[in-house]
């Protein structure tokens, strides 16, 4: 497995492709079924956000290997419209598309580390890490 791999998100089916690839990488790294499901679900949420709100972007997977730490970093990046009010989109139930508004706050809970950077008119980068225990 390459330490870096990515999948472009353009079509709806790419959401499925991204979460399947992510689950496979997580399984090979040694994550158990529950964490595999958490990782796949988190990827599905951020990939769908790219598809819905930015139309085009990518999800990158990086394996992190420290001294006594191993983990998976997922980076979702797009050049879409960006997010004006980050704290608002991190609230449970906030949606501009009739969704459940559970995506971003959900990803934060599913993963161990979470970061979102966004600039209006430029795009959005969501980074999330899951550590192997």
């Amino acid at each position: 497995m390459e330490p870096h791999s990515f999948i472009g998100i353009k079509k709806e089916w790419d959401i499925v492709g991204a979460r399947q690839l992510g689950r496979e990488i997580a399984r090979k790294l040694g994550f158990g079924t529950v964490d595999q499901a958490r990782i796949a679900t988190a990827i599905s949420e951020i990939a769908r956000n790219i598809y819905l709100y930015a139309e085009d972007g990518k999800v990158t997977f990086e394996t992190i290997e420290g001294m006594n730490h191993k983990g998976l970093r997922i980076i979702a990046s797009d050049n879409g419209p960006g997010i004006d009010n980050i704290s608002q989109v991190m609230e449970d139930g906030y949606t501009t598309s009739g969704g459940l508004g559970a995506g971003l706050p959900g990803v934060k809970r599913l993963m161990d580390e979470f970061d979102i950077q966004s600039e209006v008119g430029k795009g959005t980068i969501v980074t999330a890490v899951k550590w192997l225990r």
Binding site: Q36, A37, R38, L100, P105, G106, R109
Partner: peptide, 14 residues
Amino acid sequence: IQPAVAITLIDLGI
């Protein structure tokens, strides 16, 4: 519903 799926649904707040 698989245990792992039940857990992720709760994480999502659903």
